[in-house]
Structure formats: C-alpha cells, structure tokens
C-alpha cells in the first residue's frame, strides 16, 4: 500500500510543496498559540458551557 501511495505522489508536481508548507505553517502557528496561553485562561474557557447564567 505504501509503495502505491508513494508512486502516486509523483503526480503531485510542484503544487504539493506550497500546499504542504502552508499546512505546516498553520499547524505550527496553532501549536505555538496553544502552548503560549496561561492555564487560568483554559480553565475559564473550559467552564463556559457549564455556567450559562440561568437562575435555576
């Protein structure tokens, strides 16, 4: 299967390189964002669905 996948990759031509680079960039940015935030902020965000402000 992997051999078949690799053989198909030859049809990607130059289009594949910027595509994968763009994805990698977005993925890395997302990773950086995730690990540069404070724990308190995550705790606040996680609690939002559980605190809906109703008076019940």
């Amino acid at each position: 299967m992997f051999k078949s996948l690799l053989s198909n990759a030859e049809h990607l031509n130059w289009m594949g390189i910027p595509s994968l680079l763009t994805f990698t960039t977005i993925f890395v940015i997302a990773l950086v964002l995730v690990f540069t935030k404070k724990k308190e902020m995550y705790e606040h965000l996680e609690s939002l669905p559980l605190e809906d402000g109703t008076k019940k």
């Binding site: 977005i26 993925f27 940015i29 997302a30 995730v34 690990f35 996680e46 609690s47 669905p49």
Partner: peptide, 21 residues
C-alpha cells in the same frame, strides 16, 4: 457533551489544534 456529562471538555488545547487543522 460537557453539559450532559457535567464536566468540562477533556482538552481545550486539543480543540484549538484540531479546529485549525
């Protein structure tokens, strides 16, 4: 799911990464 289980989502960090990806 957090409402029904009455507990927060497992990983908010994971939700950010998987959203953009």
């Amino acid at each position: 799911m957090p409402k029904a289980a009455n507990r927060p989502v497992y990983s908010y960090k994971l939700s950010i990464i998987h959203f953009w990806s």
